[in-house]
């Protein structure tokens, strides 16, 4: 009985150690502002500036506008999907459509500058990219 108790206690210690998340203690000593800034950029880190571009360009469009997204990656799994899936969250009151539906779009937002697109003119530009309107 005593041996089983010792093994049980050891098993409980292993479960506790294995489940423990030191982050929940460390976080009290961490710089909240720095961590907040890092967390905010974290989901968009593979396309630097994308979050800032989409948030700022969203402010230059009316609610309900249909906007196509352009990034210099054609393949869905090769970068386009990464940007497209994140865009609606950053522009929740806009209708974000993929670049192949540009004919339905009133606006075009491009990361790091737009290609020449007939019928669209630049309305706003930043170091992160450009916004065009039909």
């Amino acid at each position: 009985m005593r041996l089983r108790a010792v093994i049980t206690a050891a098993a409980f210690v292993a479960i506790a150690v294995g489940a423990f998340q030191p982050m929940y203690l460390r976080i009290f000593a961490m710089n909240a502002d720095g961590l907040r800034a890092a967390y905010t950029e974290l989901p968009y880190r593979r396309i630097p500036g994308l979050r800032k571009l989409l948030v700022e360009s969203g402010a230059h469009m009316p609610p309900g506008a249909t906007v196509a997204l352009w990034v210099p990656f054609q393949e869905w799994d090769g970068g386009y999907g990464y940007a497209f899936r994140r865009a609606p969250f950053l522009m929740p009151d806009k209708n974000v459509v993929p670049i192949d539906r540009i004919n339905n779009a009133q606006y075009l937002v491009c990361w790091h500058g737009c290609p020449r697109v007939i019928g669209f003119a630049t309305v706003w530009r930043s170091p992160e990219g450009e916004l065009m309107r039909r």
């Binding site: 292993a14 479960i15 294995g18 489940a19």
Partner: peptide, 15 residues
């Protein structure tokens, strides 16, 4: 999760 967690769990369930 961590290996130690599953070892502890397996031991406790075995006992």
């Amino acid at each position: 999760g961590r290996v130690i967690f599953w070892i502890g769990l397996a031991a406790a369930l075995a006992i």
